[in-house]
């Protein structure tokens, strides 16, 4: 290479974009990620309805089992199930989805404030606290369930939904933690697009949580 080359490689590959370009790239990537997550959500809900419709050997909620005609559990499991598995009351499921929604709306508010150049870190802190409360509520719901994982497919699917919500909320907390900390340091006073990414993600988690809650409550 000749010394006349005026090629500037002192910026690392791909990272010499303007904030607008990065915003566009990262938002598109997030949309694609959410699209993939939506496919996961749809299949998860389909699995719920599929198992519910099949109700193999009365195993959905054992609702058709009677002491005279018990639903068999696996031959290795000593318990033969004769009673219906209780439905879960909607309360906590709704609360958790609502908490995710509140966190998302708070992030939205913070984003607006950041655009206007007014205080946004405290609002993000609040969103973070709400999301953490969501995790707490989800863990609490795990503990108060009237069944365990081994009680048929309704129980299995329900707990799988809860696990899925928990995993998503965990990602929300990671994102909000970062955004809040950076906001606290004043890093979003001019370039605030990351708050928008956090808002879009959190709102998506709220929406997917609502879908799961509706499925779990109305189609037990």
């Amino acid at each position: 290479m000749s010394a006349t080359q005026e090629h500037d490689v002192t910026h690392e590959g791909g990272h010499h974009d303007t904030p607008e370009q990065r915003d566009r790239k990262e938002l598109s990537a997030l949309v694609l990620f959410i699209a993939g997550d939506a496919i996961f959500l749809i299949l998860e809900i389909l699995a719920w309805f599929y198992l519910r419709a099949l109700d193999t050997q009365n195993g959905w909620r054992f609702s058709k089992a009677t002491p005279a005609n018990p639903a068999t559990s696996g031959s290795n499991n000593p318990h033969t199930i004769v009673h219906e598995v209780a439905k879960v009351a909607p309360g906590w499921t709704i609360v958790i989805a609502a908490l995710a929604l509140i966190a998302g709306l708070a992030a939205w508010w913070a984003e607006g404030n950041a655009r206007k150049g007014v205080a946004h870190a405290p609002i993000l802190a609040a969103a973070l606290v709400v999301a953490l409360a969501g995790i707490g509520a989800q863990v609490y719901q795990f503990q108060i369930l009237p069944f365990s994982t081994t009680d048929g497919t309704y129980a299995s699917m329900f707990e799988f939904f809860m696990g899925s919500v928990l995993a998503h909320l965990f990602l929300v907390v990671v994102v909000l933690l970062g955004v809040w900390n950076r906001a606290r340091k004043g890093m979003y006073n001019e370039v605030w697009y990351q708050i928008r990414l956090a808002r879009v993600w959190t709102l998506w988690v709220a929406i997917s949580g609502i879908f799961l809650a509706v499925t779990a409550i109305f189609f037990a």
């Binding site: 599929y50 198992l51 050997q57 009365n58 195993g59 031959s75 994982t149 081994t150 497919t153 299995s156």
Partner: peptide, 17 residues
């Protein structure tokens, strides 16, 4: 790991899933 029964027919699951 948790004993769910998505694929175990004796407890309502299905290999077809």
């Amino acid at each position: 790991a948790t004993g769910t029964s998505f694929f175990v027919s004796a407890q309502g699951g299905s290999g077809w899933l």
